[in-house]
Design a protein around this nucleic acid. Structure first.
Lengths: 120, 120
DNA sequence: GACATTACTTACATTTTTGATAGTATATAA
DNA sequence: TTATATACTATCAAAAATGTAAGTAATGTC
């Protein structure tokens, strides 16, 4: 499941950075091209796999799965499978997941300011 | 200088995400393996290229250059060259760069909490 | 029995990011 | 004259992330 090479310099560097700098640790945890948007949407409440897919029209099922699994592994979302056919799976933020709110808020604030500056 | 393929799906997706979600826009702007740590160090004041290198013992000069150039292009740091030999170049956060502080603070806060949860 | 639905998985290809290594310029000091 | 220090640049190689396309399971519906 993991394609990372534990012996690579890159891997070592990432680990080192995460250990020495909590900010980097946090950034790595919510990193990945789609993880942040997914978190943003889940802030509003739980969603099914298919609902997320509709909200992110360009994402492939593969990527959505991968990122959700990573978020799950990192304790940021929970995955609830209902024994139905066709299957139903719901994703919801964990408490620590919901605590990302202030981070997202600050990112939004800063992003807005930066965007405006750039437009001038 | 840019190795990105403007015609790729990946590129299109990134653009799209950044447009639709300011949080992602912000995250992309300070993304890159080393950009955040560099920003953290620069929060304390301006630094020379060589000083940054010492603070990040594992970074290659190439990567340090690349990330600093990106930060410069994005208006987050300024680059001041002194006409001396050997050369001296100083990097400092711009006003909007310094405004990353609250973002870093929140990342730190969250990162700490998350780390503690994981250790249990 | 064929079909639709949903949330996936698998194998492979492409793109993007990062790393390794070896250069370069140039005034000053030895 | 050679060496030194500093902030780079240029190539090439490796690793990591993302995308493409095609499957799968299982049950209820027609």
């Amino acid at each position: 499941m993991s394609k990372i090479k534990v012996t690579s310099t890159n891997h070592a560097n990432k680990q080192d950075l995460a250990e020495r700098c909590v900010e980097v640790y946090a950034a790595q945890t919510i990193g990945g091209q789609w993880a942040l948007v997914i978190s943003c949407w889940l802030m509003h409440g739980k969603l099914r796999f298919g609902e997320l897919k509709k909200l992110l029209p360009n994402i492939t099922e593969r990527m959505l799965t991968l990122q959700l699994r990573k978020l799950e592994a990192d304790g940021i979302v929970t995955r609830t499978v209902f024994a139905e056919v066709p299957p139903r799976v719901e994703y919801e933020l964990t408490p620590i997941g919901y605590e990302l709110k202030p981070v997202l808020d600050q990112l939004e604030k800063w992003g807005d300011k930066h965007k405006k500056l750039r437009q001038k």
